[in-house]
Design a protein around this nucleic acid. Structure first.
Length: 494
RNA sequence: GGCGCGGUACCCAAGUGGUAAGGGAGAGGUCUGCAAAACCUUUAUACGUGAGUUCGAUUCUCACCCGCGCCUCCA
């Protein structure tokens, strides 16, 4: 079954076919680096990450480009406020974006930056002027003439038919022809960052960068264009207008938009106090894997309610999956094979694939793997798992993790990094005891843990329970989870 | 006002014209020196309200109530 995706352009779920065989070219709108990214930003980035991973798992060779908007009004305002250049101001937040993305296991796209494409933007605008799609105003700004592009509104399903530019055509050089015409280029203002270009001094409008960079990287027509739902209008609508006006060809074929999330049932906003960056959550002691999991739990087109209960619940879910893998890889099984296990693994993989084929139904894909975990665990308990079953089950699990990427227990170093960052930023008061505990539990090396465990076992065997309980308490205090099973003692880090 | 989305158990949340996935939490159990951890089992006569279509609706249609998004720079 082919991948089916909701296409904002058609308003329908469509079969996905790439333009060029098994090659897929996709572009996603990335962050504006004026601040640390929040969980809403990362919901979108993770949704696109899942799409990227699933396309590759489905056999496509994917070129995935994402822009970084490193110049805009807020950046200019804030850098002026801080008395630094635009580049100096954004460097820190670009770095933070890369770190946070890595912490959430977002696979890196090809990154392109607006400030590195100023010349191309000027050329692009000059070409639009030549073709009559853009005009210059008296102050030296450039606007796109919407009335020249009849399909304007096709993505956002807005009707601009009533808008003409006839009445004010004679004031062309003084003002915008039409209130809806949007800025391609903004004339410089005193004290603001500005670039000298062939079309005059100034700085780019917001939309032009994505047209220029996507077409430069992927060609005038490409397969997929992604972003948050708020970008449908005006940003993506304007990108289509500019790009198609210039090339005369269809710009992106499939438009993929992730829905906004809610935080504790309300729209995220600074005034409500429910506005969180990834770092805020880690500082509160939440693992990056919990955040990633929570953000993948609800299919990307549905509203996701991000709550702290949900975050705890996500942590438990990830634990359950990791425990399963741990059990699979740390147990000695009797030789042989139980055909039911291979079949279970195959069924799970099939169900997972058809779930993701169905417009990335992550909830259903996760349900499939949890069903497998439960059934396999039951088989474990009944001693019905054999040695040859392990690779089958592991392979299904790995296939799942190629998309969701939460099984590897790499939370601790990431949390340590946030801890170090918070100290460097002078935010000690924001560091929760939970983070201290989780980030600090590597105080004991593996050897030391094994040593203590051996001592504990010796004490237990000698029925010196007071002594063994003391050792156990020490280990727990160091963030080590000790499991006594009928096969012996196992441990892992919290 | 225009366009669009959603209301499913204690919480989160899939899904289907034929009688409700999954996760968390709770309860019970297995294991254990006791615990913990882990695992298993279990938890919706019911899917916002009312009406209609249908042999049959949570699933389709209409109305209403509630929540949410976009409508010029917020992912």
């Amino acid at each position: 079954m082919p991948l089916r995706l909701y296409n904002t352009l058609s308003g329908k779920i469509e079969d996905f076919h790439s333009i060029d065989g098994n090659r897929v070219r996709m572009y996603a709108c990335g962050p504006t680096v004026y601040d640390y990214g929040h969980i809403g930003n990362y919901r979108t980035f993770i949704a696109v990450d899942l799409l990227y991973r699933f396309l590759r798992q489905s056999g496509y060779d994917v070129r995935y480009v994402m822009n970084i908007t490193d110049v805009d009004d807020k950046i200019i305002r804030n850098s002026a406020r801080d008395g630094v250049t635009v580049q100096q101001y954004t460097a820190k937040f670009q770095q933070a974006f890369l770190e946070d993305s890595a912490a959430l296991n977002i696979q890196p796209p090809v990154l392109v930056r607006a400030t590195e494409h100023i010349k191309q933007m000027a050329d692009f605008i000059a070409e639009l002027v030549k073709k009559g799609f853009a005009y210059r105003t008296e102050d030296g700004s450039y606007y796109f003439r919407i009335a020249r592009f009849p399909k304007y509104g096709k993505l956002s399903k807005k009707d601009f038919a009533g808008m003409t530019d006839g009445a004010r055509v004679d004031v062309d050089e003084y003002d915008k022809d039409n209130a809806r015409d949007f800025a391609l280029w903004k004339a410089p203002k005193p004290g603001e960052a500005s670039w000298d270009t062939s079309i005059g001094p100034g700085r780019p409008g917001w939309h032009i960068e994505c047209s220029v960079m996507s077409m430069e990287q992927l060609g005038p027509s490409f397969d997929l264009h992604a972003g948050g739902e708020d970008l449908i209008f005006p940003h993506h609508e304007n990108e289509i207008a500019q790009s198609e006006a210039l090339s005369g060809k269809q710009f992106a074929r499939y438009w993929f938009h992730a829905r906004f999330l809610l935080v504790e049932g309300q729209k995220m906003s600074k005034s409500l106090g429910n506005f969180f960056t990834i770092r805020d959550l880690v500082l509160k002691g939440h693992k990056p894997s919990s955040i990633r999991w929570l953000l993948t739990q609800v299919p990307y087109r549905n509203q996701l309610n991000f709550t702290f209960d949900g975050l705890k619940s996500a942590a438990s879910s990830v634990e359950k999956l990791r425990n399963f893998k741990f059990r699979l890889t740390s147990t000695q099984f009797p030789a042989g094979a139980n055909p039911a296990m291979a079949q279970l693994a195959t069924e799970t993989t099939t169900r997972m694939k058809s779930a993701l084929d169905d417009d990335l139904n992550t909830a259903e894909a996760q349900a499939a793997v949890f069903d497998m975990v439960r059934k396999a665990n039951a088989a474990f308990d009944a001693s019905e798992v054999r040695k040859e079953d392990v690779p089958c089950l592991l392979s299904a699990l790995d296939k799942f993790d190629e998309i969701f990427d939460v099984l590897k227990d790499d939370d601790q170093p990431k949390m340590k990094a946030v801890l170090a960052w918070a100290r460097a930023e002078g935010r000690e008061e924001d560091i929760s005891p939970e983070l201290q505990e989780l980030a600090g539990s590597a105080q004991l090396s593996d050897e030391q843990v094994n040593q203590k465990l051996a001592e504990m076992q010796a004490a237990r065997n000698a029925r010196k329970f007071t002594e063994s309980d003391t050792l156990r308490a020490e280990l727990i205090a160091a963030g080590i989870i000790v499991e006594n099973t009928k096969d012996g003692v196992r441990w892992r880090r919290k």
